[in-house]
Design a protein around this nucleic acid. Structure first.
Lengths: 180, 180, 180, 180
DNA sequence: CATGAATGAGGGTTCATTCAT
DNA sequence: TATGAATGAACCCTCATTCAT
């Protein structure tokens, strides 16, 4: 059974994702979680702290996604990443929006500066290790390009109000990295 | 000489870009612009209205950037767009952040829904017209890819806390689209 | 006619005196002054600021009490001070209590540290100048004693729940300093 | 070994003295005493009750100070009281401040009304008995004066931010009462 | 005797907006 | 145009106290 603390985090995640961090009041979280304000502040020292907990949790989840199966070839690993990201993108669209919201809201960006840097660094390392196997001399640029390509599609997809050809974009990417 | 109304818009733009829309109070705008609250509400019916004015203005500016010189070849036009965007990206980094902030803050996104759609549509049309000259059958996908690639680099660049190899990424793009 | 700001200060003074600074909520001040919270924060940047305004005002009033009639003899001046203080003590008992409350509440004492020091210094100077005329060698000690004697009676009077022989104490003091 | 209850009282005393009663939360006491909230409320029915325990304890301690050696002469007893009080004043400055804090904080004053009255009465009786030996007709006034003189010095000393000539003031008092 | 999750009222403060001047 | 006093709802957070374990 879920603890009240877990319920609070989960509820807050949903509300932050739907309305944005700034526009979600602690009171709203309490009501949605059927919990008193006192309890929220018993578990978290501030509203910011809830956000930090959510973000760190999601970083953890993200890292657990990338399998470290070193048996596989580089291009297989890239395909795997692409598949995993696009899967997540479809399944947790709202959650990805939250991440962008956090990243580009100056106030939240400041709150999470440390954690954002940490995640970006780790992500880059994972990708670069793969490209090292492919082309050690240019692994830096290749990594930047790879990450940008995924980010770009995500951005277009998440910012679009209308239907977005996500599958087609994914296939384009898969094709490009198939023979690396 | 600038009108008071222009001063208000300009001041608000800077503050929104630096602190985010939600975190910028009307009082702060008034103080920074050396103007009374009454005057702000004389010119704008609400804080939202200021944001709308800023966004529409910036869409206008953006559209004026893309020359409609139909004499040029498609690949030249693409290069031109790439150059223009990267130039802006460097010159007005804060302003681009504001656009992302607006786009992924659910509250502001809702306020500007109409304007965001409009801008996206216009942008897509401009790009697609170019790709129609290159490969009419696939102009849709090519346009999406092109926009995503630019968006992706912008996103990586704007979200990075550290040095980002913007020039190198730009060169990669230019190279890719040179011979189209 | 009194300005709203003056009404706020006056109301706050009364409530602080009756219930203490910490135990008087801004909401209570608003209600008693028939004024909105917004207005209080329009005129004062914080609750502390109200306290500071009150304290500084009272220091001003206090200083205006001591006439600077340099024609008079030293012992006459002392008598005058004694009379003035005891008069105030009777008339504004609650206000003197507020001063003691502020002085010995660590939180308020810290808020007003600067102002408390300033007042104490000014007070000491005024008294010492008088004792300089009487006995220049010992004017420091004599000043301390004089101030302590008045403080002591005030303290006893203000802390007493029962009838306190204020007149008799005053006469004792007047008698002591009559022939200086 | 100290009982948990004693630790709570001791910790609370220190915190009340340093931050004031109102500004010290039960949670702060618990943390400082390394004790749970439950335990505090097991030993005391409310926060007020802790304050009462502290105050009554200190009254007890105070009374134990004054020796009842009826052999001694009146002026010796007075000297003894003066010496004892000034000793305490130096040793437990913070604790005396707490007493003044309590006395002039309307809320705490009300909580401890009974105990404050009781202590004042007992103190007055002790002093008056001594002055009865000296001048029965005027023992009331003499007692008030004596208490006020001590209170006054204590007040000046405790309210001063700077060095205060406590020793000198003490000597003045001792000299005055030496030949009574 | 001992813990700490849980409550709910109330604290100080911010802020978009209105309106008389 | 231009000012700034004035409003009131909402915000984040604190805290004494209770209670199941």
């Amino acid at each position: 059974m879920k603890s009240k603390k877990e319920i609070i985090v989960e509820t807050a995640t949903n509300l932050f994702a739907e309305y944005g961090f700034e526009k979600t009041s602690v009171a709203a979280i309490c009501e949605a979680a059927s919990v008193s304000k006192g309890l929220v502040y018993h578990h978290f020292s501030s509203k910011d702290e809830i956000l930090i907990a959510i973000y760190e949790q999601s970083t953890q989840d993200m890292m657990n996604l990338s399998s470290n199966d070193s048996e596989k070839k580089a291009n297989e690993k890239l395909s795997e990443i692409i598949n995993a990201v696009f899967q997540q993108l479809e399944d947790n669209k709202l959650f990805f929006k939250l991440n962008l919201n956090i990243m580009f809201q100056p106030s939240t960006r400041k709150i999470l500066e440390t954690q954002i840097k940490e995640r970006a660094t780790q992500l880059f390392i994972v990708v670069k290790q793969i490209f090292n196997e492919i082309d050690k001399m240019n692994s830096d640029v290749l990594s930047y390009v790879f990450i940008s390509e995924i980010d770009g599609i995500a951005l277009s997809y998440l910012s679009s109000f209308e239907e977005y050809p996500l599958q087609e974009m994914k296939n384009q990417l898969l094709k490009k990295y198939k023979n690396d």
